[in-house]
Amino acid sequence: MTGSDIPSSFRLAYVPGVTPTKWVRVWHERLPDTPLELVQATAADAPGLLADGGADAGLVRLPVDRDVLAAIPLYTETTVVVIPKDHVATAAEEVSLAELADEIVLHPLDDVLDWETLPGRPAVERPATTADAIELVAAGVGVLLVPQSLARLHHRKDLTYRPVPETPESRVALSWPQADEAPDLVEEFIGIVRGRTVNSTRGRAATPQRPTDKAKEKAKEKAKGKRAGTGGGQGGARHKPAAGRK
């Protein structure tokens, strides 16, 4: 990659609930001269943003179209039910789907869980967003099932949440536009999220040696050659004087 081909920055998209902070910190430590720009996107819009070149890579929710985007799954989130703090379900450490059978379960239009059949009773109208659904939970209208990170993102003092086993789960992945080889900066970020060390042979290519460094190396080699040739005799070899007759 020539100097003119090196991107001036790396654009990383991320969806609600995903926290890229620790990876961004490592990026700044390893590549201080390459700014990382964070680009917020909804879970629904993130794949299109990447496909259209609006970001170099993204932390997205699966599934994505693998014919268009490459993806490395990173982790799977626990699904929780968001409920008022005075709800009877708070007495348990987790809640079963059967216990939600009589509840109004809100199903926002931006839901990221892939339901075959939504549990509980449906609301009269679907909230437009998860944030709107949280407001309805606080108002006592119903309960909401979301990945745990979204429950934390929309935290309120009057609400809490409990894990719900045997429900669809959301998987988070690092994704980027399909190519024969991932771009250098994408490889750098892949290495960071996978925990590779800074000296790993994968990821960014070794930094080319500067001309001044090369000159120093040549000078050192030249000095070594001179020292090797000062031992006397042909080829610089040292000869032990022959012992005289006694």
Rank of each mutant, 00 (worst) to 15 (best):
G236F: 11
R152G: 00
A237C: 12
A215H: 13
K214M: 13
A55H: 04
T117R: 15
L69W: 10
D184P: 07
P165E: 01
D86L: 01
E188Y: 11
T207C: 07
D132P: 00
E125Q: 11
D52M: 12
A46Q: 09
D184F: 05
D114C: 09
K220P: 05
T21G: 04
R162L: 04
L69N: 08
K246R: 14
P84S: 03
A215L: 15
V68E: 14
P127I: 00
A237L: 15
Y14T: 08
L38Q: 09
P47E: 06
V124M: 11
P119G: 11
D114W: 13
K246P: 11
T117H: 13
A173K: 02
D67V: 04
H28L: 09
F189D: 06
P177Q: 09
V39M: 10
H155T: 01
A91E: 01
R61Y: 14
T230F: 08
K22D: 03
G58H: 08
L144V: 02
P177S: 10
L136I: 00
A215I: 15
G17Y: 04
A205E: 10
G58T: 10
A101I: 03
E99Q: 08
E166H: 06
E217P: 03
V60F: 12
E221W: 14
T78Y: 02
S200Y: 09
V15P: 05
L153F: 04
A41N: 10
R121V: 14
R61D: 12
G232W: 12
E221I: 14
E188V: 13
V164C: 06
E116S: 13
P122T: 11
L136F: 08
T78C: 00
G53Q: 11
L113T: 10
T167V: 06
A139C: 02
K240R: 15
G140R: 01
K214R: 15
D158W: 00
E29T: 07
T230A: 15
E103N: 00
A138Q: 09
P32N: 12
A57W: 05
G235C: 09
Y14I: 08
P119N: 11
H28I: 04
L69D: 09
W23E: 09
A44V: 11
P183T: 06
G120D: 03
